[in-house]
């Protein structure tokens, strides 16, 4: 009895293994496979399918929610990725820690379509490691029917008139950063006194804040649940489509300018295929489809020519050089991250 059961079990196992092998052999055979690691909902998926068909390269697509999340899974090893999309300060950190391959721009002819103002960024001064993917700003979105003061400064977020009508962004660097900027300091400070001052300011603000939110901010603002909210520009564009009462401003203190870039991590063994993929994304037509789907701002000049006049004039989507003249770009402050985290916990736990 025992023996026959064991035999049956082994047989079953064998059959299933063989069938799995057979099945996987049945599918289309690709000449290579690349692993792409991107933010959630940050690509038009049909582009991936088209790429697979055109180049006969299979794409395994996975997503992450924060830069740190992505950084940790790359750093801890175990997972290999060929194309990753970190933000500028994370690009810098990864360059500093020797985690990235140099990209051979000869393999990315479409790089010429990237606007010159997005080249030679402080994070990657010689364009050796990264190709800009999307960009945007951090600012305030407000409901015109609920706010009658002029909105042009971060200070409005401390106006008691709008108590319990303010939504802050649940992100350490952004919330602390904008407060630092309002106080006249750099968003990238490591100075403890300055950080302490920002902390006090945020604790002072807490009774006025309705909530510290993530993705829900869109629903809340569209539904008129709050008067003011700190948001990323791409979200603002989408919100304005759904509720015309909403308006987006980049505060006069400067706001924050961010870039998400495509990079190739050192763990990648398919560098050429990865470059092929990045080049594909920079193709004006493809970038247009992607921009149209995601709603964030493209750094691709040719793609911009295909966009609606209305969208191009929208300060949320494509601010002029003047609008972003004072905007600050995040720098890597990894050595002070623990302090940021402590401050943020103190504010939220109060």
């Amino acid at each position: 009895m025992k023996r026959s059961l064991k035999l049956k079990f082994t047989l079953l196992l064998a059959v299933s293994i063989v069938s799995i092998l057979l099945l996987s052999g049945c599918g289309q055979s690709y000449k290579a496979t690349i692993r792409v690691y991107n933010w959630g909902d940050y690509i038009d998926k049909s582009i991936i399918t088209d790429f697979e068909k055109e180049y006969n390269i299979k794409v395994i697509y996975t997503t992450f929610t924060t830069n740190e999340d992505m950084y940790v899974s790359l750093k801890s090893g175990g997972s290999t990725y060929d194309v990753v999309f970190p933000s500028e300060y994370m690009v810098k950190r990864m360059i500093n820690e020797d985690m990235l391959h140099k990209i051979n721009l000869d393999n990315i002819p479409n790089y010429k379509y990237i606007d010159d103002k997005f080249k030679n960024l402080p994070a990657d001064p010689n364009n050796e490691y990264s190709v800009p993917y999307f960009w945007g700003t951090l600012g305030i979105v407000y409901n015109k029917t609920m706010v009658d003061d002029p909105v042009d400064s971060w200070e409005i977020l401390w106006n008691e008139k709008y108590a319990k009508q303010i939504l802050m962004v649940d992100s350490q660097r952004d919330s602390i950063g904008l407060t630092l900027q309002m106080l006249g300091y750099s968003m990238n400070t490591r100075n403890l006194d300055e950080l302490e001052e920002a902390k006090q300011k945020l604790i002072e603000q807490k009774p006025l804040v309705l909530a510290y939110v993530g993705d829900e901010v869109k629903d809340k603002m569209v539904g008129g649940e709050a008067a003011l909210a700190v948001v990323w520009s791409g979200e603002a564009v989408a919100m304005k489509w759904e509720n015309p009462d909403l308006e987006y401003v980049i505060p006069k203190e400067g706001g924050n300018l961010w870039f998400d870039c495509a990079v190739i991590p050192k763990v990648s063994k398919n560098k050429e295929e990865a470059e092929l993929f990045i080049n594909y994304l920079c193709d004006p037509e493809i970038a247009y489809r992607n921009t149209d789907y995601i709603g964030y701002s493209t750094p691709n000049i040719e793609t911009m020519k295909m966009l609606d006049e209305e969208l191009l004039n929208d300060i949320a989507a494509y601010p002029s050089d003047e609008d972003i003249a004072n905007a600050e770009v995040f720098d890597d402050v990894s050595d002070a991250l623990e302090i940021y985290d402590r401050i943020w916990t103190e504010i939220k736990a109060k």
Binding site: T65, T66, E68, D69, Y71, V72, K75, D170, S171, Q172, K206, V209, L210, A211, Y212, V213, G214, E216, L337, E338, Y340, D341, W344, T345, K348, A349
Partner: peptide, 24 residues
């Protein structure tokens, strides 16, 4: 996080924060 609007940090939020945002 959802119903408290991020204003009532619980131990679970603290743990999540360490893994996802600070990498500690």
């Amino acid at each position: 996080r959802l119903l408290g609007g991020g204003q009532f940090t619980l131990i679970g939020n603290l743990i999540e924060q360490q893994f996802l945002y600070t990498g500690e």
